[in-house]
Nucleic acid binder design. Structure first.
Length: 470
RNA sequence: GCCCCGUUCGUCUAGCGGCCUAGGACGAUUCCUUCUCAAGGAAUAAAUCGCCGGUUCGAAUCCGGCACGGGGUACCA
């Protein structure tokens, strides 16, 4: 049997980095086993629906190059892949459950449910549906239906039973059926709830492996029951640990800033580095490698080796991983990525850009670092980190004026001139750096000047801004 | 409240009853290199394996209780 995995996002806003982490596992598992990876859109909550969110999901998957084999956009043998377009299917299966006696109509109003819950809370009872409508006779139901009373469909839960399933990551998990609510499976607007839609569609779309966040563990017994009621085989389930905020307080949230996929793109992270990091926080390469490409990850990873504990998100380590990727890249490829990321770089002379690459590459962690490191190659500094020392600058200028333009010669000249003037060479270097780049920190100075050229370098000493400082 | 999952250096983890005086990586510190900052190399510090009991000749590893953390408890997913 071909393995089929799926990601089932709801179009309610920005894609979460946790979703990408799930996609990575789905994608890797499907590709490892020669199966298919499917995207199904769970757009059943019309109140939270966000226009355009679906396109953003595709764009994110494309950025990470984790595109599905089947989706609402490209279709597939199990279309439609949008739940809002499958309403008739859910209705049919809900009816089947009702006729089998596993589900029932419920006409309770939201107001009644709310007062019921408050009541239960006051009595320190677990907030659960009180099964009022389960007692309705077929006659009552028919009358209410004929009167067009709004209704939902609820699933029945057996009493005093153990409901168990085996999670591929956490192992055997058991629940007492008495703690499980008579969950609504069809809402009054004719849309299914997540619990119903997910079971029906995973079955119909022949999903073999369900990887989802651990927040779903508590609802899995409901799904177990649904599979049982229908007589369907339950897919393998693996609940992935939730990624926590850096301080360990709660799951990675928007509040803490780094939850959105968009953040990583805009900050200058490389998608392959983000994926490498993501794979690394819940799983270890058998040889202890920290850096490995996607192909190697797919070959090496085992779902059973995924840890069950919730990791914190460590931005520092991600930065390191990103830096590793940048350093491993060919200059030409890196330049293409930088130009793609930074509009300012697009217009610039490619020959000059290429010459700057070896000088800045090992100083970069993010693509966004390029411009702050290399801007001085393309424009004279507009300001200086501190006032310049005239004496030191003059020593440097005079030395460079009559010097062959290679970094070795420049170094010799400046050191000699410093000695003659009884100055420390390092101070002269620093002043020169400041005068040419405006900053006290940057790529190797003399090699940078070599790239910059004699005319431009010396020209920078004739500028008004500099004169004012001297 | 109730239910479920989890608990090894600051962080991510390795560990599956003796190979553990607990290994690796990020981060930190120091040194080397050096025109700055990085990168690279070397080294150091850092975990009484949440706590308490039990099983065993022997436990980070198995069992029980507790504590703590996370998640769930909707006509949200």
């Amino acid at each position: 049997m071909t393995t089929r995995t799926r990601i089932a996002p709801s179009p309610t806003g920005f894609p979460h980095i946790g979703t990408i982490y799930q996609v990575l596992i789905d994608y890797a598992y499907a590709h490892k086993t020669g199966g298919k990876f499917i995207l199904r859109l769970e757009d059943t909550d019309r109140a939270r629906f966000v226009e355009g969110a679906e396109e953003v999901i595709y764009a994110s998957l494309a950025w990470f190059d984790l595109l599905p084999d089947e989706s609402p956009k490209i279709g597939g043998p199990f279309a439609p892949y949008r739940q809002s377009e499958r309403l008739a299917i859910y209705k049919k299966y809900a009816d089947e459950l009702i006729s089998k006696g596993h589900a029932y109509y419920c006409f309770c109003t939201r107001e009644r449910l709310e007062t019921m819950r408050k009541d239960q809370e006051a009595k320190h009872q677990p907030p659960m549906y009180d099964k009022t409508c389960m007692a309705l006779t077929p006659g009552d139901v028919a009358a209410k239906l004929a009167a067009h009373e709004p209704y939902v469909v609820r699933m029945k839960i057996p009493e005093h039973e153990k409901i168990a399933f085996d999670d591929i990551i956490s192992g055997h998990i058991e629940f007492d059926s008495d703690v499980i609510d008579h969950q609504v499976i069809m809402k009054s607007d004719g849309f299914p709830t997540y619990h119903f839609g997910v079971v029906v569609d995973d079955h119909l779309m022949e999903i073999t492996h369900v990887f989802r966040g651990k927040e779903w563990i508590s609802s899995t017994p409901k799904h177990v029951l649904l599979y049982k009621y229908f007589g369907w085989q339950m897919p393998v389930h693996g609940h992935l640990p939730l990624i926590l905020n850096e301080d360990g307080k709660g799951k990675l949230s928007k509040r803490h800033g780094h939850a959105s996929v968009d953040y990583y793109r805009k900050a200058g992270y490389l998608p392959e580095a983000v994926l490498n990091y993501l794979s690394n926080i819940v799983w270890n390469h058998p040889e202890g490698k920290e850096i490995y490409d996607r192909k190697e990850f797919i070959e090496q990873f085992e779902v059973t080796a995924i840890t069950a504990q919730a990791p914190r998100f460590d931005l520092k380590k991600l930065d390191w991983v990103n830096g590793q990727y940048i350093r491993a890249m060919q200059d030409e490829d890196l330049l293409a990525r930088i130009a793609d990321f930074d509009d300012r770089v697009k217009q610039l002379d490619k020959t000059l850009l290429m010459k700057t690459m070896p000088l800045v590459k090992e100083r970069m962690h993010l693509l966004s670092d390029y411009w702050s490191l290399a801007a001085f190659f393309f424009e004279a500094p507009k300001e200086f980190e501190r006032p310049l020392n005239k004496e030191l600058v003059n020593v440097a200028v005079n030395a460079l004026g009559e010097c062959d333009w290679s970094h070795e010669k420049m170094e010799q000249a400046i050191r000699a001139a410093s000695d003659t003037a009884k100055l420390k060479a390092r101070d002269v270097f620093m002043e020169l750096r400041l005068a040419v780049t405006g900053k006290m920190v940057g790529p190797p100075l003399l090699e940078s000047l070599e790239v910059l050229g004699k005319d431009i370098t010396l020209g920078r000493f004739q500028r008004e801004e500099l004169d004012k400082l001297l």
